[in-house]
């Protein structure tokens, strides 16, 4: 039996850290299933393989550091699964393995393990892979027939071509990362997390809302802006991370707003077609600062 000692107020949730992780895994299975449906068997292989490598890496690192092995607590599963979902569907397995090792070994374990990492491990690994193998990381395929093509964001914002229809964007019938394409599947997963109160609304709402608002102000189609790229999966599954995002409602709102502004800046004024990845990583750095600014006032304090 273990006793947890902490100062008040105590927030009570129906779950402990371990079962929260498995709820997140459950929610992630919806976009994962959509990815397998659209991109076929290679997508399934990539998901299973990346997740396995992430879990094994965590176990090996903890064994090397002579610490208790907690690789089965679900957090490594979440990282591996998330990483696979933000990779191109045909990404080479050995590169994905290096990405998973980097995510767990460098970004998570070296910074102290679960709860101490500064950056979202999956996103940091994606940035690492993008800088390492830019060609493989930007080779996209069309759903079903696997013909190489560009993503809608790239075509519209950098090549000034017509956007695909809203329905295709919504169900996920477009080129993109494995699990980012289907807005529908991500929303179902997000609904699971919101209903079980594993995540709350401020960060995703501020993130998606600000991208829509600023896109509209800059003369772009706001519906296209929020349904393309990795915005949905980033807003619901990464900007809500317990470890790397702020803890208070106000802080989470600021976090989401910052992510939205950075995303818009990168998409319309930067060299990359998509900016969700870097915007969340950038805001991860600011999280301690936001937490300090948005700290709730002590009762009776000024």
């Amino acid at each position: 039996m273990s006793f947890n000692i902490s100062v008040s107020p105590h927030i009570r949730l129906p779950f402990d850290a371990k079962s929260i992780m498995w709820v997140v895994v459950l929610a992630l299975l919806f976009p994962a299933a959509a990815g397998v449906y659209f991109f076929g068997l290679p997508a399934l292989v990539l998901i299973v393989f990346t997740t396995l490598v992430a879990v094994i890496t965590e176990a090996v690192c903890q064994w090397l550091a002579k610490r208790p092995i907690t690789a089965a607590d679900g957090s490594a599963v979440v990282t591996g699964l998330l990483l696979a979902l933000i990779l191109p569907p045909t990404f080479p397995l050995w590169m994905a393995a290096i990405g998973a090792v980097f995510a767990i070994g460098i970004v998570k374990v070296l910074f102290g393990g679960l709860g101490f990492n500064i950056f979202n491990p999956a996103l940091a690994a994606r940035a690492f892979l993008l800088a390492s193998w830019p060609v493989a990381m930007t080779t996209w395929i069309r759903p079903f027939d696997a013909v190489t093509t560009a993503t809608p964001l790239f075509l519209v914002n950098k090549m000034h071509q017509a956007a695909p229809g809203y329905w295709d964007l919504f169900i996920g019938n477009r080129a993109g990362s494995l699990g980012e394409t289907s807005v529908l599947a991500i929303l179902i997963g997000a609904l699971v997390l919101l209903l079980t109160r594993v995540i709350d609304w401020p960060a995703p709402a501020a993130f998606i809302g600000s991208v829509a608002l600023f896109s509209w102000l800059l003369g772009h189609d706001p519906w296209f802006a929020i349904m393309s790229g990795g915005l949905m999966i980033g807003a619901f599954f990464m900007a809500t991370d317990y470890v790397t995002a702020p803890v208070t409602t106000k802080g989470r709102f600021i976090f989401g707003l910052g992510c939205g502004i950075m995303t818009v800046l990168i998409r319309y004024f930067g060299g990359f077609p998509e900016g969700v990845n870097y915007s969340i990583l950038f805001m991860n750095i600011l999280t301690p600062l936001i937490d300090r600014y948005a700290r709730p006032k002590l009762f009776g304090g000024r």
Partner: peptide, 11 residues
Amino acid sequence: KDIDAITGATI
């Protein structure tokens, strides 16, 4: 059109 761009480096 008449030039093969470098893969991933259109700009």
